[in-house]
Design a protein around this nucleic acid. Structure first.
Lengths: 213, 213
DNA sequence: CACTCGCCTGACTGACCAGTCAATCTGCAA
DNA sequence: TTGCAGATTGACTGGTCAGTCAGGCGAGTG
């Protein structure tokens, strides 16, 4: 589908170029504040070609989101299946999301700003998919509640919201330069967010685990 | 300014009517997906009158946001000034925000969806004001870190992000029907979010505080 | 060479809508 | 009664931009 006829060896995949250009342009100008011609220009491609590969401007964003989000859902499911403590699972989920941002900041910015946190437009369209992520995290918490390592007083749905919300807020802070954005900070944040949510902010008598970094 | 000439007794304040109509329309259709004429119609007012009271569609949203946000900033400052434990302060902050949603769900929806979580459009414009809220919360955490009740390993900025992010995620879940939305749930959530962030999700040996509700 | 087919082009169209403005209304004061 | 000023009206304008379409190009095929 990406290119029905075999792409000539070495010939650029225009469809991919358009998607990559869209990431750049959406991240820079925002989905609503850019024109389709901006994407075409960025891709070095004629305006009309965008409509050869995609039905609409929105379809480009949908494709970017769905492609990436499914990878995350699969990762969460895979992590949940392991036989390790819940805290370690949550650490791996946080790692996955933060690494995604570290590796593809523009794409993650687009997904968070234009979809995940834009619940009134695209978020609504993808609410079910977004919810799957919460449910995946809730599943991790649920097992921990059952084996006694997590409190029963906090429902797994609620815990998942807090955990995901905390991570997304930190990502948003990076995206908009409210927190310093370095490789070290990314690495450090993985442990901190898990420590904050699982261990809590309060000192509990004998509780001051050294954090690397 | 709202009405330079004294408003006739019992005569409706058209400016206020437009603001209220905007809350309804923005909440229902979203800021970008509604027309100024929708707001005028909802207010039962001629199209042109909107531009008599406001310079632009955006100014209406700005006014709604700034008015409400300042109240919250003042509330946070007032809470921070009290001589009570940090956990209690955070509980009061959570209470304030959740009560705001409970009392004015449409207005809070508009502020969260169109401003706070719309960092690419209005969020950017108000980034400084939004940041003030994080800083207010960070201030509360900072004192607690200094008096030894909160861990030093988690910076106050980071903790503030987690706390605020968790609350906003829960509000968003209510807004989009991902969590049940009842007066009881609102009340319950105040304690849960503070318990999750301050106390953590994990059981800590002797730690299973009964939660009301 | 001529034909085909899919890739590619970019000028154009149609719809939408924020913001303008000239005209009208209304209450009050001289 | 006349005049003023601010409130109110809604048709209209100007600009923007997503999506269309008729046609050009080039590689493979016979």
């Amino acid at each position: 589908m990406a290119s029905s006829r075999a792409v000539r060896a070495g010939a650029p995949d225009k469809r991919r170029m358009i998607l990559d250009a869209a990431i750049t342009v959406f991240a820079r100008q925002g989905f609503h504040h850019c024109r389709v011609s901006d994407v075409a220009d960025e891709a070095g491609v004629a305006y009309g070609l965008v409509y050869h590969y995609f039905d609409s401007k929105e379809e480009i964003l949908n494709e970017l989101f769905l492609e990436r989000w499914q990878i995350m859902l699969d990762a969460i499911a895979e992590i949940d299946a392991r036989e390790i403590p819940a805290r370690d699972k949550l650490y791996m989920v946080a790692s996955f999301i933060i690494d995604s941002y570290s590796n593809q900041p523009d794409l993650m910015k687009v997904i968070i700003v234009e979809v995940t946190r834009a619940a009134n437009s695209f978020g609504r369209l993808h609410l079910a998919k977004i919810r799957e992520a919460y449910e995946g995290i809730a599943g991790i918490v649920e097992s921990a509640r059952n084996d006694g390592s997590f409190k029963l007083t906090i429902t797994s749905e609620f815990a998942a919201m807090c955990f995901y919300g905390a991570i997304e807020q930190v990502l948003t802070a990076w995206i908009f330069d409210l927190l310093p954005r370095t490789e070290e900070e990314f690495e450090h944040a993985k442990g901190l967010v898990v420590d904050a949510i699982c261990g809590g902010l309060e000192t509990t008598g004998t509780n001051a685990p050294a954090v690397s970094g």
